[in-house]
Design a protein around this nucleic acid. Structure first.
Lengths: 217, 217, 217, 217
DNA sequence: GATGAATGAGTGTTCATTCAT
DNA sequence: AATGAATGAACACTCATTCAT
């Protein structure tokens, strides 16, 4: 039980290294097997194909992340309820209640990203060519669903169906930007400690952005 | 005179199509030639290699863009001078002088991007594997150089050398975000008219973000 | 156990045939594979590249030959010691002690060449374009190192460093010629029996040449 | 008349350079034309094909050389007549009449080789893959024809038809060696002055070799 | 005389994948 | 559980050569 699966583990390690170095497309299964000290046949015993091998490195963390994100968006929306309709001076943003809440909520995401830093590095920056190449778009879509509602609420619309084309566009951008913040953190911070520190500033930026958009025109 | 270079043009068109569909790496020169109705040898008469073919689609627009961006950043910095040290209510951001300037400056960039929409679509989203794969990073670096100074000025520092590690991180992020705004616009708007409309909101978002960061803590 | 490696063997055989017919450069890996009844992929399972395939046909014999040549030159030098300073009538050359020794020493080389006739045919006449294309020069250099000393001794010089430019030239030529004798034998004699017979005459020629040079002027 | 043919000349110059650098096979007509500043079409106006281009660099010198060689061999045979049946001490070879004659005769060849050094460098060392790749063999055959007779005469045979298989083999070798001497000189001496100096020693070597063979057993 | 364009067959090489053992 | 062998399609690229203009 401790010895078996050892080859599998070795293969996954070497795959991680190869995918990180070269990206999904340029990664060579040959190389991975050579590094792992096994033949290509062995790889195909454990994994269906290249796609499956990659999937085994990122699928599980991704699944959990999606759940965490859903929670994140829901909590965020709850926290935002208090701000609806108000006008804030930017100097107050940092102090406002919602911000502290937002920070704590986002921290959960960041912490989880760092618990699986390798996997998310791969997934978010090296998946081109694999079935995960559009995963960022998918996460943006998730964000968008929630942010549409949140935006509508903050604008005082009755429903997110009332969003104009213009509204939708900026919501899409802000959704994209929220996801990008997470990606940026996980790819630019060396550990979770640094990540949490930078997160504060980035959230301030994002919330400042939201406020400006909400109050624009 | 109208007939000559026809093959070259055809090849570039088909290359554009293939690169857009599959990205630089997966694009097949064979396919491009087949589509263009010529043999691979013909392609190599006009272009040195795959890289050169790709370059012929993006190099020139890129060169011009870089010049335009430099101007953009310089003008932006000049416009920002008036805001240094002040605290603004978010509700005023839209009205402030600097914003209108920023908008006009950014418009130049966006207009140029749309004059070469195809090329920039390629360059900014499908260049992986080519020598242009890090072009976005390069543009972010450009932005960062200018934004470091601008940020220092707004914070009241004497020099951008006084930036803390934390300052640098957020400046890098905001530089990244500025470039991302341009990319987002060029990849999500169908024409320059729509682009200019959305640009306003996005700039409000960005400036709101900056204000929040500057005034944070 | 008798079946395995059969493909590899077949490939080597067909490669030998193709290389002999067309030389390294013009040899086509596709042809080799077609002849062997396998796909090109199979070839690349066994051999790294064209160079490696060629190397597998000649490297080992070459390595051994170089060892044998070193011994050859050393023994030859020892045998020549007795002739130093003497003047011989050409009619006596055949009878002199040194000649018989030389013959026996050279025989070892010739025998080995014939044990690997195919490989040396390839190596010595069809390697142009491969990494072995200068192998003859290399062997000449080896010969030259020893013959410089031998020549110096026969001339009564204290050291081979005393050789004039002219001396060096003729020593280089004679080194070249010695190697050429071996090449000529292996490419012109059908079996080792014939080779040994011809070797005698060729050595007489060479020694006659040496004597003439030594006593010249 | 002075301006036309200029392109042709340029092409031949560049071809010489390319062939020398890479050998016939690896030489690229593209490169030659690029160097000459013309298109491939231009080349094909002046030359039928690659072979023809190469031929235009070497055919004429070769033709003349063959004539000179014929004379050389005939004169050499005449000079050798006086030696027939005699036994010479090696120490006397240098002084013997025939040697001086031989030297003068060979000088003609060497001088001509140096008048067309470039062409012969090409022809003798870089022709592999062209129709001239066996030219050395051909010259050896020429030598052999004459040397068979000379050898027969020196051995006291009535006719060269009386040569044994063994005789023929050594005659072939000595013919080969004579040609090799010329090749060696033209490829190793930087000018005709040096060539003539070294030639003396090389002829002594050759004649010493002949004497030894003639008197062997 | 020479260009510019194009051909078509060829090159060595790499790849993910399969499968009998 | 893993090996060793092999497939077959694809790849970017190079070449000598042709020919209408």
């Amino acid at each position: 039980m401790d010895k078996d699966k050892e080859t599998r583990k070795k293969l996954l390690e070497c795959a991680m290294k190869e995918f990180k170095e070269k990206g999904y497309m340029k990664a060579s299964l040959r190389n991975i097997c050579k590094d792992a000290g096994v033949t290509t046949g062995a790889l195909y015993f454990f994994f269906k194909d290249k796609e499956d091998l990659f999937g085994n490195l990122v699928a599980e963390p991704l699944k959990k992340l999606e759940k965490i994100l859903v929670v994140h968006f829901i909590e965020e929306m709850a926290a935002s309820k208090q701000l609806a309709g108000k006008k804030l001076d930017v100097s107050e943003i940092a102090k406002k209640q919602g911000f502290d809440d937002d920070y704590e909520i986002a921290q959960n995401v960041v912490r989880f990203l760092f618990e699986n830093k390798d996997a998310f590095d791969l997934l978010l920056t090296r998946a081109q060519g694999s079935s995960y190449e559009n995963i960022v778009d998918h996460m943006v879509d998730m964000a968008e669903m929630h942010y549409s509602k949140m935006y509508a609420a903050m604008k005082g619309y009755k429903s997110s169906r009332n969003l104009t084309k213009e509204d939708k566009f900026i919501v899409h951008w802000m959704s994209h930007d929220q996801i990008d913040i997470f990606i940026h953190i996980v790819t630019h911070c060396k550990d979770v400690k640094e990540a949490e520190k930078q997160l504060k500033n980035m959230l301030a930026y994002m919330i400042g952005g939201w406020m400006a958009v909400i109050n624009n025109k």
